[in-house]
Write a protein that binds this DNA or RNA. Structure first.
Length: 400
RNA sequence: GGAGGGAUAGCGAAGUGGCCAAACGCGGCAGACUGUAAAUCUGUUGACUAACGUCUUCGAAGGUUCGAAUCCUUCUCCCUCCA
């Protein structure tokens, strides 16, 4: 039932930044095949933000590959650890989250992770780490904490930097890697996946398992996906993300706005393209390559039909300029109306001052005609196309 | 416990009685250029107003003053050094 270890290894190693260690992974794969026992592949999810974005899918897709090869995904919802907040890559202490918020987030997480993972019960095991962490006594915690020295903890780059810059580190944050490592012990993980920022945490799991006389898990870290800006990692709080639940046109549009340079990185990390395949794409027009990428991403979360529709929508709005095709209706009362009021009805702007500015800067058009006087009063007709800024396109409908 | 320093708009950071809705940089938005690219250039970036202007904002609450981000008092939080 399992494919030969080397075959599996080839698939699994693709795209990974670092594997501790490949030899151990091969050995585990061989043993698993011989014993007809699926490997337990652990992935911790931190339910502090309620949305999964493309950045998360890099690791989730790797998890899916394990599943497709017959292994078992063990998804840990870090409901207990979330109370501390993972210090990885963070420059400041995270606020602790309320239990209800964590629960809510965990539910959306599971639902969204299902867009990438195989959710069949024999392929996916979901555990909340409060199950074993909540009941630990102080003595248990002390015992756990004694596994690690201060020097080891302080080796971490993010801690070191924070210390240097006089940024707080809550003592509880030091315990985070231990909690996560303990998860590995409890679920008897064979492999733990994560982003490169999880390397330290995941390696702690190896140590703890060894101390508990278990075979240490293999740690596999995947690259961190850069966000839309192409500089910082994709994250919700930076606003440079594409969420897996976003509507097709949003996904497509956002993907189109990334730089060419970043596009190749996304091809590699999100679609698993090889350098050779990317080189072939580079020979063509970059915009075509980007549309293909954008369509592939939409297709992944919404299906092929939606991908085609999003592509058409984009073409109509920006390439062919057939605004009539893409405009959403905007109900307007019949009669005269100030331009600012009209634009305000789109609900797409934060204040009237904002609208006034956009008008003055030539960002508002009615039927292709620029209107730059904020105080002009017009009498809109049904079917007219109102455009405000790059993205807002509405077709006037008269109400009443 | 002692001594000193700090908290300013989304972020970083100037400002130390009126010229401060608050320099500058980043980020954001819009325009030009394009491939809705990116980069670049230009404008803009508290709210309301057609505008004059009005209102709210510089950790919190009080006070001094014709006038406070700026001075005083108390409070909250943070940092550094010493113990």
């Amino acid at each position: 039932m399992f494919r030969p270890a080397d075959e599996q290894l080839k698939i699994l190693c693709a795209g990974a930044v670092q594997i501790e260690t490949v030899d151990e992974l091969r050995k585990k794969l061989e043993e698993s095949r011989a014993a007809h026992r699926p490997l337990r592949v652990k992935l911790g999810m931190d339910p502090t933000a309620p949305d999964i974005h493309l950045g998360h899918t890099v690791v989730l897709r790797k998890m899916r590959e394990f599943q497709d090869l017959g292994h078992k995904a063990v998804l840990i919802i870090g409901d207990y650890t979330a109370m501390i907040g993972d210090p990885s890559g963070k420059t400041r202490t995270r606020p602790m989250l309320a239990p209800e918020a964590i629960k809510r987030n965990a539910e959306t997480y599971f639902q969204q992770a299902g867009k990438v993972l195989d959710t069949a019960p024999d392929k996916l095991e979901i555990r909340y780490n409060s199950e074993w962490l909540a009941g630990m006594s102080f003595a248990d915690v002390l015992r756990l904490a004694s596994h690690m020295t201060a020097a080891q903890i302080l080796q971490r780059r993010d801690f070191k930097e924070r210390l240097q810059n006089d940024v707080d580190i809550a003592l509880s944050e030091f315990l985070y890697p231990l909690m996560q490592g303990w998860d590995s012990v409890v679920v008897r993980a064979d492999v733990e996946l994560g982003g490169t920022d999880q390397l330290f945490n995941n390696l702690v799991g190896r140590e703890l398992q060894r101390d508990e006389k278990q075979e240490s898990q293999v740690v596999m870290v995947m690259p961190i996906l850069p966000g839309l800006d192409g500089v910082q990692k994709m994250s919700k709080s930076l606003g440079n993300y594409i969420g897996v639940s976003e509507p097709p046109n949003e996904v497509f549009g956002k993907a189109m706005s990334i730089s060419d340079e970043l596009m190749w990185g996304w091809y590699e990390m999100l679609l698993g393209k090889t350098q050779a395949e990317i080189a072939a794409l580079k020979a063509g027009h970059p915009m075509e390559a980007k549309k293909t990428l954008a369509a592939a991403l939409v297709e992944r979360f919404h299906g092929a039909e939606a991908a085609q529709a999003a592509r058409d929508h984009f073409d109509n709005q920006f390439s062919k300029k057939k605004l009539d095709e893409v405009a959403e209706p905007l109900a307007v009362p019949a009669g005269k109306i100030g331009l600012i009021e009209l634009v305000e009805k789109t609900g797409a702007f934060k204040s009237r001052g904002d609208i006034r500015r956009i008008i003055q800067e030539g960002g508002v058009q009615l039927d292709g005609q620029k209107l730059t006087d904020p105080k002009v009063v017009i009498e809109p007709r049904a079917g007219q196309i109102l455009r405000a800024g790059k993205r807002v396109v509405r077709k006037i409908e008269l109400a009443g």
